[in-house]
Amino acid sequence: MKKVVAILVVVLAFTFSSNAQDKMMDNPVKTISLEQTKGEFVQKALTVSEGTYVFEVSNNHAAKEVGLVLVPKGKDASKPENHIKTAYVTAVAKDGETQKTKATTLAKGEYVYFCPLNPTPQYTLTVQ
């Protein structure tokens, strides 16, 4: 009886693991690369499909440190409670460095992105 239960547990665990891997293959995490120079992002507007993304932010002599803020369009970008926290870089990108964010799932709609450390304009990210 113990062997049957143990085998059943192993089979169920394998099935759940396989299903999780299949879902990950259907929705791979993609990378959006952004480069900052003095006072601006090189990428002025972006259009991507719905999905999960990691933002990679490069500091090309823009400032001592740079970061990223992503906010749904129409929300007050000056209020941190409106920021999408997973889209913050995990560490500021120092001069000449590149840093990444956590995986961020983007639904259809419009967002704005900017850097408050290297004050940039707000740029539009459209998710279709």
Rank of each mutant, 00 (worst) to 15 (best):
M1G: 15
K3A: 06
K3R: 09
K3N: 13
V4T: 14
V4M: 10
A6D: 11
I7M: 08
L8A: 15
L8W: 02
V9R: 01
L12Y: 05
L12A: 14
F14E: 00
T15C: 08
T15N: 06
F16I: 06
S17V: 05
S17Q: 12
S18Q: 10
N19C: 03
N19A: 08
N19H: 02
Q21M: 15
Q21G: 01
Q21S: 04
K23P: 01
P28K: 11
V29G: 13
V29K: 08
K30T: 07
T31E: 13
T31N: 07
T31K: 12
S33W: 02
S33A: 12
T37P: 03
V42N: 10
V42G: 09
V42M: 08
V42R: 11
V42K: 10
A45G: 11
A45L: 03
A45E: 11
T47I: 12
T47L: 10
T47S: 14
T47P: 02
S49V: 00
Y53F: 09
Y53R: 05
V54A: 05
V54T: 14
F55C: 12
F55E: 04
H61V: 14
H61P: 04
A62F: 02
A63V: 02
K64D: 11
K64N: 13
K64Q: 10
E65G: 12
V66P: 04
L68Q: 05
L68I: 04
V71I: 04
P72K: 12
K73T: 06
G74L: 10
D76E: 07
A77Y: 13
S78L: 12
P80N: 07
P80M: 13
N82F: 14
I84T: 06
T86A: 09
T86R: 01
Y88Q: 05
T90E: 09
A91S: 11
A91L: 04
V92G: 07
V92A: 13
V92Q: 10
A93M: 03
A93K: 00
K94F: 05
D95F: 07
Q99I: 00
Q99D: 06
Q99K: 14
Q99R: 14
K100N: 14
T101L: 03
T101A: 09
T101Y: 01
K102S: 12
K102A: 15
A103Q: 07
T104E: 05
T105R: 12
A107Y: 09
K108M: 09
K108T: 13
G109L: 00
E110Q: 15
E110C: 09
C115P: 01
P116F: 00
L117S: 15
L117T: 11
N118G: 03
P119G: 05
P121L: 11
P121G: 10
Q122M: 15
T124R: 11
T124S: 14
